[in-house]
Nucleic acid binder design. Structure first.
Lengths: 125, 125
DNA sequence: TCCGTTGTACGAGTTGAATCGTACTGCATG
DNA sequence: CATGCAGTACGATTCAACTCGTACAACGGA
């Protein structure tokens, strides 16, 4: 059983039941840096990941298989970690799976308009 | 700060009189790519350059001395070229100087909200 | 004409990112 | 317990970017 830590900076995008796995290490809201965030989003694959999370998320976080990305597993680990370490996503360990969601509230607070830019982006263009 | 030598103040974002030096090679509006633009803006120095252009531009373009950046000249050339090749700025040769301005209309058309993100950014944070 | 100014071009050194193979862990299920 | 599954960790390779020194070009003025 993964360690269950109470608390957690509430407000994810969804109402999450208490007793959730603690988020993996991530920067605090006030430590989010625009250049870093822009850098992590400058990769088309990661931009697609974030966009899909924003547009197609269900009422829960998503493991990386959900994205249907045609890359080796170790590459995906790399990109999801980059997104989390830049503060764009939050990851929690659910048993076997490590699931992600976008830190919508945090990003809107620090960089209003950024997420809108991502959802408006056309991955095909 | 150097006096304007050639023709009229241009305007870029302002109406441009004919007889202006042709812009250096740059991508067309429809070729602007969000990942590329975000990538070029992920450098704090370049982000500062663009922000200063957006907030403090006069009625004409600015040569790179105007920015007061404490870097070797060859480094500045590199960054200004990166901004232009990503489509963020336009550069024109005015005699000795190569002056830059932000492609405001183009960026607003392709990525609405992006420039606002830059002006709202605090370079010190 | 020589000099100072503005800036490019080129190349080297260094760093960091992206990519991916391989080996591994932890859990579930037969 | 053996297999399969989700995903990490580590290391190697490749490649692009940043940084900057140096050399050079174009122009204006004394």
């Amino acid at each position: 059983m993964p360690p269950i830590q109470d608390a957690a900076p509430a407000v994810t995008q969804f109402p999450e039941p208490p007793g959730l796995p603690a988020p993996l290490p991530e920067p605090a809201v006030e430590d989010l840096r625009l250049p870093t965030v822009l850098g992590v989003l400058s990769d088309p694959l990661r931009l697609r990941i974030v966009r899909k999370l924003l547009l197609e998320s269900e009422q829960f976080d998503h493991s990386c298989g959900w994205f249907g990305l045609d890359r080796p597993k170790s590459s995906l680990t790399h990109h999801f970690k980059a997104l989390r370490e830049a503060g764009v996503t939050r990851q929690r360990q659910y048993g076997l799976e490590r699931r992600s969601h976008v830190r919508i509230a945090d990003l809107d607070a620090r960089f209003p308009g950024l997420l809108n830019l991502i959802t408006a982006w056309d991955p095909e263009d």
